[in-house]
């Protein structure tokens, strides 16, 4: 339990919260967005807003804590975001940025890496690994809280939190809206996490706009059906512009050429999945465009200066969200 004032003196950043609230995230693993309930999400958003508003004392909140960043993929943005988040809360950071951990054939195993890290008295592990299931596996292998910073094509829960945080700020609500997801929905790790998170909210409609080959995975569909979320798969690229007027938010992911066994297939569809002024002209005037970045050519720079471009602000929301998560997970511990 954390309480107003608490026992942490000037570390309290939760002044605007009720006298007593339960830090439901203290000591918890963040593996899948399915594990959150709505209160957890609102707690993270509340603390992120406090952090953004610049209340004093935050820079010391995790003094004496150790955060390990284990990145077995050459990711830079998420690594930096977590690095800065942990540092700016006063935590010590141990970083292992080594793609050979994910080698099937050689190098140290992920399991051994985690066991070694345990010996350093680490308070939290942040993991990026190309294997699906890697975060769950690590969470089962250690009692240290684990944050999934990307488990292959499976999930990227902190990205989904910052995405939903962005929707809340820009749209003013996280219920009762229509979202289009465009591009590679099959191999994008952010799409399942975002779907799972949105399924906790009411009245969200999702349009999956992708060729059959890159459509959303079956387990995501099954999850949404079980939670009663209304969704539709749009596989014909000609239909995209018909859907546009329905949407409040358009979430764009990159289509990679390598996913297509037949390159002529790729050439045929690629133009339909590019977001530019022309495509936006079919949508609502206030339609928000999101993208996990970095982009290649699926999002035309001509969109950047429009009020519809939410993606730079979206990227900026990564830091307060990750700070809030680290604070909550570690703040409740001893």
């Amino acid at each position: 339990m954390l309480s107003r004032g608490g026992d942490s003196g000037n570390k309290n950043i939760l002044g605007s919260f009720p006298q007593q609230f339960e830090n439901t995230l203290a000591g918890r693993d963040i593996i899948s967005c399915r594990d959150f309930n709505r209160e957890d999400v609102e707690l993270v958003f509340g603390v992120a807003e406090e952090i953004e508003s610049g209340v004093a004392g935050v820079e010391d909140a995790l003094r004496g804590k150790k955060v390990a960043l284990i990145f077995a993929e050459p990711s830079t943005r998420t690594f930096q975001s977590f690095y800065v988040a942990a540092k700016s809360l006063g935590a010590d950071v141990i970083s292992i940025h080594d793609p050979s951990i994910s080698s099937m054939a050689k190098g140290e195993t992920l399991y051994d890496t985690v066991k070694m890290i345990e010996g350093y008295g680490v308070d939290c592990i942040v993991l990026r690994h190309p294997a699906r299931g890697s975060a769950k596996f690590v969470a089962e292998s250690t009692s240290i809280p684990v944050i999934n910073a990307g488990s292959g094509s499976q999930e990227h829960p902190t990205q989904a939190l910052l995405d939903t945080f962005t929707i809340k700020k820009k749209l003013g609500r996280v219920d009762n809206f229509s979202m289009g997801m465009l591009g590679d929905l099959r191999f994008s790790r952010t799409i399942p996490s975002l779907c799972y998170l949105l399924s906790k909210h009411d009245g969200v409609r999702i349009f999956f706009m992708a060729p059959e080959l890159l459509q959303v995975r079956r387990e995501v569909e099954l999850h949404l059906s079980q939670r009663g979320v209304v969704f539709r798969k749009v596989v014909k690229s000609e239909e995209i512009r018909e859907i546009m007027p329905e949407l409040d938010v358009l979430y764009v992911t990159r289509i990679q050429k390598e996913r297509f066994p037949d390159l002529t297939e790729y050439e045929k569809v690629k133009g339909s999945y590019i977001v530019d002024m022309k495509l936006l002209s079919y949508g609502k005037k206030e339609l928000g465009v999101m993208h996990p970045l970095p982009r290649v050519d699926e999002l035309s720079p001509e969109v950047d200066s429009l009020p519809n471009a939410w993606y730079f602000e979206q990227a900026r929301n990564g830091l307060p969200i990750r700070k809030a998560l680290l604070y909550l997970i570690l703040g409740g511990v001893a």
């Binding site: 099937m104 195993t109 769950k136 387990e219 099954l222």
Partner: peptide, 26 residues
């Protein structure tokens, strides 16, 4: 990943005619 000590584990969802990998959701 054969070198990682991760034993495959499935939940049976008979009504959907599938088993679900507890690690990767497949």
């Amino acid at each position: 990943y054969e070198r990682e000590p991760a034993t495959p584990r499935y939940i049976v969802e008979r009504e959907h005619g599938v088993v679900v990998c507890e690690y990767c959701d497949t």
